[in-house]
Design a protein around this nucleic acid. Structure first.
Lengths: 344, 344
DNA sequence: ACAGTACCCGAAAGCGCTTACGAAAGCGCT
DNA sequence: AGCGCTTTCGTAAGCGCTTTCGGGTACTGT
């Protein structure tokens, strides 16, 4: 991309048109004190009739507040992340912010690199959705970078994890998982299996804890339940289903810990000719947009992903607190057609 | 977001460490001529061991090449767009570019506003996926903005449309549509209906043209085929299906012009107790990730969306030609379970 | 009437980078 | 040796903005 000199108006043009100095113009437009309201109003009016838009680069270079935020996700093509991004872009647009999206392809090294890039780009805030930084050798430097970023005035929020020591918006994973598990247990299922992503993720740990609680509530032993650990993708779900079918043939219900995996499970079962929910019930987690349109439609736990994206940005925009804050959003059981009583 | 002074290293630090002036350092790092290769190499080495990262804002302010590109989509939550974004982010990361994503919620006014914002932000290139700028009263100013943007050295590419007079990457909509239609006609379907998005979109026009060709090839009259025009969403598909069921009860196949609509059609048919494909065949267009996991899995036309995102960025990055270029990608029929012979 | 105070506003110094422009140095040639 | 040429590098002038600092103006109190 080539060098060029923009042909747009500068602050000076506005200042001249309003009959003030560029200092007052700047103050008026950015709402700084030290300008009488009458003058400020006039400048704003002139600026808007002229169609003036501040040069973000100059502003940020001069040390002004940065109106751009970075969003890092595993894979923007995944509905879970794209719906979060959608919510976040919504409030971003409303607030006049620009959003830089990076995706890491689930590679922690790339995640760290992207964080560094965002920081180097002087974004004002960073929102991390689905961090894969679990390995201490990468998590430690990431934490350090984020800390110095915050000390320099940057804002950080994480979605769905709580392992980086920063503000977080968290779905109620424990309660949601407990609800699905109870649902299946109430239906009479006793031989269930779990298809999970990496246990190193706090998400997985929390959801497993919820399952465990439901089992405990029913006086059952969760330790006997097979938990197959692959990863949070469709392929991971397929693999998990194959393994469950092979190693635990009597299972009547598969609890997938996210919808992508559940979709994989469904397709693996279909390929094997196993009928859902007559022979095996399947549940998911997230309630991505297609969950209701699958056949059978998927029983799952609804997370308000768009809202999580919004809240994360709102949280990041607020004045930083001294200690990390957590905002919780509800996780709600949605019963559809993929779950039913076990075969008798 | 607050004011702050970054505590990172500047070009001057690198220059001192390498024992050269900042001018030479700058030239070395940005690959400008006028520096001996030995010196340049040394500077680059020093920079990388120091972990120096140039300040994008300073660079862009000083008139250097802008390493950021803007992507505007209708709705990042839609799989079609998020998969395009995914491909584009991939090459973006590889090229060391940062990507700003805007979504317009299908609102042409917001689309224009976002375009203006990107231009004001001095991005180096703009990629538009799915423009809704069809109304002349908005399209004209948009074209004008884009033209001056290009004259100033900016690059522009459009995905899937060819109405803005700029470089475009286009799937072979005509051929793809022709292939699905032929598929259904070969199966013996004669009473078909089409569920389409707005006819003002070139996408729709092209796909309808393809259908028409297939009908002509078979010696049939396409004019007799009902085309229900709602919009390219799941809800639009549902509405279209309801209408088709009500007004054309004898239909044995519904051709949806994208997968989102097809999913809506499937769910409407399921709600009505209509069996697919036994009673009615359904086809889509795009082949989004879930298309193969639906039940029945969806017969559709595969567009390489990730590749389209990549190609668009590659196209935008190339030296601008004098005339708008077009790059075509293939559209390939994927036959799955949602299509079959009509009931006899 | 005058000093003291508060309030606005303008001049100017950068933010970190790119890039004219000019100086210095090396070369072959007369 | 001296000339002009090319090549390599440094000096310095901005890019458009924010912000400190100081000067003006209009008040207040005595």
């Amino acid at each position: 991309m080539s060098t060029r000199r923009a042909a747009t108006l500068r602050l000076q043009d506005v200042a001249e048109a309003a009959g003030v100095s560029i200092a007052t113009a700047s103050r008026s437009l950015s709402g700084s004190p030290g300008v009488s309201e009458t003058v400020a109003e006039r400048v704003r009016e002139v600026a808007s009739t002229l169609g003036y838009v501040a040069n973000v680069h100059a502003r940020s270079l001069a040390g002004g507040p940065t109106r751009t935020v970075g969003l890092v996700v595993h894979e923007i093509g995944d509905p879970y992340f794209s719906e979060i991004a959608s919510g976040l872009l919504g409030v971003g647009a409303r607030e006049g912010l620009t959003v830089q999206i990076c995706h890491t392809g689930r590679d922690p090294e790339r995640e760290l690199a992207q964080l560094r890039m965002l920081i180097a780009n002087r974004v004002g805030a960073i929102v991390i959705a689905g961090s894969g930084l679990v390995d201490p050798s990468l998590q430690a430097p990431a934490k350090a970078e984020l800390q110095t970023f915050r000390r320099a005035g940057g804002r950080v929020a994480v979605i769905g994890r709580h392992h980086l020591g920063v503000d977080a918006v968290l779905p109620d994973n424990v309660e949601g998982a407990r609800a699905v598990a109870r649902h299946l247990l109430d239906l009479g299922h006793r031989r269930v299996a779990v298809a999970a992503g990496s246990r190193q993720l706090t998400t997985v740990a929390d959801r497993l804890a919820g399952l465990q609680q439901a089992f405990a509530d029913a006086g059952l032993d969760f330790a006997a339940v097979p938990v197959v650990e692959t990863d949070f993708t469709r392929a991971g779900g397929k693999a998990a289903a194959e393994q469950i079918l092979a190693e635990h043939p009597g299972v009547t219900a598969v609890l997938a810990l996210n919808d992508d995996m559940a979709i994989g499970v469904l397709s693996a079962l279909r390929a094997r000719g196993v009928s859902v929910p007559r022979e095996v019930s399947v549940t998911g987690f997230d309630d991505v947009a297609v969950a209701g349109d699958l056949a059978p439609s998927l029983t799952t736990v609804r997370l308000p992903m768009g809202e999580m994206g919004e809240q994360a940005l709102v949280l990041a925009l607020k004045k930083p607190g001294t200690r990390p804050r957590r905002r919780h959003v509800d996780a709600e059981l949605v019963v559809r057609d993929s779950s039913g009583p076990p075969p008798s």
